[in-house]
Design a protein around this nucleic acid. Structure first.
Lengths: 201, 201
DNA sequence: CAATTGGCAGACAGACCTGTCTGTTCATGA
DNA sequence: TCATGAACAGACAGGTCTGTCTGCCAATTG
């Protein structure tokens, strides 16, 4: 699973105004992330990705040994974005921290192109628990659960593991509800859920 | 969307002991449901389904005009199973009714072949909101939400719509958690969630 | 008995899939 | 100036996809 390092995003302020100055591996990953999320992973072929990214096929297979490697890179990219969001939150009490983290769900669901949770959608297409894709998803979920559990513990919750489990389930459910039902209702549902699940302030 | 009527399941007590006595349309749907759920919809081709069902290709296309019709039949079949489960529940107070309905999640997740929510998994593969598949999923979700909301109202909940929304999100999230995380934790999470979300007994 | 019906078997078309390979162009650096 | 490496364009192989079609067989029905 070795491919071109993509952990550093392209800084648009660099004098790479020309789209073609963005390196091919980055262009491929950006295009793939967009298409995979919008249409599903199995539904999008390599030919489509390289065409929209403007990259030759041989170049693609040089940077990503297989399509699955690209999928894993896509999952890890989205995972990085989520962790960066949390890392960038201003310091605040645990309960407000949790509310801010959950609040991201409402923001995401309000997007016109919102199509549910990247990780749940991908997991639906990868039944093999041992597959690299599923392992990347597991790593994401473990981090998310752990982050919430630590915050619960810090807030004085007597059963942080249970509460974190409920918050994870709520997050998953609201992410899917924002896709399949009415996204506009998500924020008030989050508010109501936090009021009932977290120890009173 | 007209195909052979499948609303009546085959009664195994009928003297159709020979597997081949089960009508082809039913054999196809049973096989497709199993494969679609286990491996994903786009990942399973018609050739595979007809081979495992022991049905000729022409016969398949006689009963189901296209693969999507089969997918819709699969979704509707699972929807029927869920509604039948609720309809068969013994009469009991609203709160116990809700607990029994949510309890089905724990039962399902404990199955060794459990692979998450049929409807959420399918929705992940069908981005078009107007597609027949998504419409069948919408109908299912509307019924589920409505069922819970009526029970909440009957239990004297002052805001049944909000509570039902939370219960739907919880259901979705626990169904996914039972797939991706630890299924054994689902029952206690359900219990804890009901204690916190429903008005005290 | 004869005709109809329903299902089986499998070839076929045309598109798309992943992944490999050949050969060309172009920029950079020795 | 020339060599190297990266990316481009695109053919190709081998397989799978959906959906159509032809032909055969067996059971049922008039």
């Amino acid at each position: 699973m070795k491919y071109t390092d993509l952990s550093v995003s392209v800084n648009p302020m660099k004098k790479t105004a020309d789209i073609n100055d963005i390196p091919p591996a980055r262009r491929l990953l950006n295009t793939a992330s967009r298409l995979f999320y919008a249409e599903g992973i199995h539904a999008v072929g390599i030919d489509r990705i390289i065409a929209e990214a403007g990259v030759a096929k041989a170049t693609f297979y040089k940077h990503f040994p297989s399509k699955d490697d690209l999928v894993v890179a896509h999952i890890e990219e989205q995972d990085r974005a989520g962790r960066a969001y949390v890392a960038a939150l201003p310091a605040q009490p645990p309960r407000e921290m949790i509310a801010a983290i959950l609040g991201r769900i409402g923001n995401a669901a309000s997007d016109a192109d919102y199509r549910g949770c990247v990780f749940l959608n991908a997991a639906a297409e990868y039944p093999e628990r041992a597959s690299p894709v599923r392992q990347a998803i597991d790593a994401r979920r473990a981090w998310y659960r752990d982050t919430l559990q630590k915050l619960c513990a810090a807030s004085g919750d007597p059963s942080p593991e249970m509460t974190a489990g409920l918050l994870v389930a709520l997050s998953d459910g609201l992410l899917e509800g924002g896709y399949l039902d009415d996204p506009a209702k998500i924020p008030s549902l989050i508010e109501a859920a936090l009021a009932k699940l977290l120890p009173n302030t």
